[in-house]
Design a binder for these strands. Structure first.
Lengths: 366, 366
DNA sequence: TAGCCTTTCTAAACCGGTTCAGGTTTGGTC
DNA sequence: GACCAAACCTGAACCGGTTTAGAAAGGCTA
């Protein structure tokens, strides 16, 4: 039963500093506050604050002296005090509303977050993460993040049709950045990776290989990128002059991808190619094809979306569309910071995801 | 170029409330602070605080009245003010030091975090997440989380040999919980899922199937669970009376798992079974076996570790060891909260991970 | 030399809670 | 009725910054 004894200064915030300036015993390193710096520099608290946040009205030499003293004493302004005073938290939020299973098999967020962090950390901002099971909890979470003043801005991922979070956040006055362009009006800047070209390229690639019966295992249509990918699929077929292809809607989960594949392949005239809306489903589809004795890519070509690490190492390696979640995270973080700094920020369009051709696609024999 | 106009009350913290009690226009909903509640309830601020934090010394009826008024006015104490005053942040931290690639293919953290959240959210605590690229940054991150008072406690994952974070955090006086038992002295409670039995069971299972040449694709030996798993592998072989097996050390990445598999299978007398230290590597191994024309499970049996969602849907489905990261997250969060509450907490031993037998293992023909 | 800006700086209010020393009641005991 | 302790409550200090009103000093103009 380990016992934790809080360290020196943290112990009791209200602890009297025993006596007056009691012998400078090496006991409690006295906390360095703005007061101490001010006294030592022979100026008032206020002026130290001004010097720190370099605002006008401080004589140049005075400013230098103050900063010098601050450095000597190793003073770092207290984030908490500053938070109370400025009504800001210097942290950003990310709320992920996903079934843990789906989340677990989708490597998007870890990479995205790594990208976000690479921008936030040097700025001294933190990321507050929430993972919630459903939409209701999600909205409640946003409300309480705001009510508690935990964050100064948020990232909006997994955009949905008529996304309720947008009016909610706009109403709460919380700055936000959307990952992708929402379908309704939005006061927030959007950081977008267009996924249409990647899907269209997949279809074009398959058509060029001679495939005519191409099916699509789509993600959830309530998710904007889900429905946009399947829209792209449909119009790519049309452009190629092919009849409408089969589309099976799923929830993006591995299990659903597997099921959908079984349904498609056990028909009388199964497709010769399947375009999946994400990689995990494509990998599950690959497994199902094996199980059914359908050879990939000989009997069936498949393509995924995201280019997760696995793609290169399954057999055959997966033809897929490569987005760059880390770059996306970086761009989103920069944009959100700019928005908070300036009150406005431009939309950012990142390079469209591109098709990476590997071994899971081959000429049609159908 | 969207422009965000901060909402009403958030606008300017210093904004005078225009005039005195200027016409109760529906303009600015006046902020409800503890002062307002106190005045309305006819008591002092202090007493409201006491009532809220139900501490002794408040007459029962008074307490009820105060809480009643608070509810009527919809008062929620300001987290920021409370933070400054109590020197606590009501948030917990998780710092993940991993190469983004490895992180992305490992579903442990998303599930773990979902578990953590399920405990924290109802308690009104937040999770501050950092993803950092290397150990140096990691230690710096801990220091600054403490210096900024961002968190009141942290989770220590991916324990290493002689982990430097333990003395660091002990020195900083920050409560922590370790995921697994560290190899050195630690003042922190450990929440553990013993992974030895799972690995031993894997080996036993393979031995029972008649395998004699069993190899191990291990994770990084600097990671405690990496070396423990390979230790378990070695002693399981010994117990079975088999000669020492081949072990290839990796960094847990999919790429390394693939490489290791190629090395093992292209030898003169390749193993008839491979025990992988995690699922992603096992799945990559499966792909490599396919590529080399080695049939699984006919020519080669393989086992993984973690039981990620994919296991069930690759072909053949993967025999693996099922830990329960979500449960682990829950337990770790509860333990950390208990530690912070009471100053001490007991170690927790969760049920050991258990073997799940699927199609990737079969009797040896070697 | 008075009058008026500017620049530099200080003092004090403020953010919104928590906590502590001490003041009033209340009730019980002898 | 005096004394005392316990219960309840208030006022003020405190956490550590930011911000504003205005004081002090210096420079310029008329």
């Amino acid at each position: 039963m380990p016992v934790i004894i809080p360290a020196g200064t943290t112990a009791n915030p209200r602890a009297k500093t025993s006596g007056k300036s009691s012998a400078k015993s090496a006991a409690n390193p006295p906390k360095v506050t703005i007061e101490v710096v001010a006294k030592r520099a022979g100026v008032s608290k206020g002026l130290v604050s001004f010097a720190l946040n370099n605002r006008p009205g401080v004589a140049p030499e005075t400013r230098v002296r103050i900063l010098q003293v601050a450095k000597e004493l190793g003073w770092k302004p207290s984030l908490r005090a500053r938070s109370l005073s400025t009504q800001r938290s210097y942290a950003l939020g990310l709320v992920i509303a996903r079934n843990p299973d789906v989340l677990a098999s989708d490597p998007f967020f870890p990479s995205f977050i790594a990208g976000v962090e690479s921008i936030l950390a040097p700025e001294g901002r933190a990321l507050v993460l929430s993972v919630v099971p459903d939409e209701e909890t999600e909205l409640r979470t946003y409300r309480s993040l705001v009510a508690d003043g935990r964050v100064d801005g948020v990232f909006l991922s997994d955009l949905r049709h008529g996304d309720p979070r947008i009016p909610l956040l706009a109403g709460l006055g919380l700055p936000a950045v959307t990952l992708g362009r929402p379908d309704g009006p939005s006061p927030f800047p959007a950081v977008t990776v267009d996924d249409t070209p990647g899907v269209m390229a997949s279809v074009a690639h398959l058509v060029a290989l001679g495939h005519r019966r191409i099916a699509h295992v789509a993600g959830s249509s309530t998710l904007l990128h889900g429905s946009r990918r399947s829209g792209a699929f449909t119009s790519a077929l049309r452009e190629a002059g092919l009849p409408e292809g089969q589309t099976v809607e799923t929830d993006f989960s591995v299990a659903a991808g597997s099921d959908a594949t079984r349904r498609l392949l056990t028909q009388d005239t199964p497709p010769t190619a399947i375009v999946y809306a994400n990689d995990p489903m494509a990998i599950a589809g690959l497994g199902m094809a094996h199980e059914l004795g359908v050879r990939v890519p000989d009997d069936l070509s498949i393509t995924g979306y995201d280019d997760i690490d696995f793609c290169r190492y399954v057999y055959p390696p997966l033809t897929t569309v490569s987005a760059a979640p880390m770059v996306w995270g970086r761009a989103a973080a920069s944009t959100l910071l700019a928005l908070m700094e300036n009150g406005s920020a431009n939309d950012v369009d990142l390079p469209a995801a591109r098709l990476v051709i590997r071994g899971s696609t081959a000429p049609s024999r159908g």
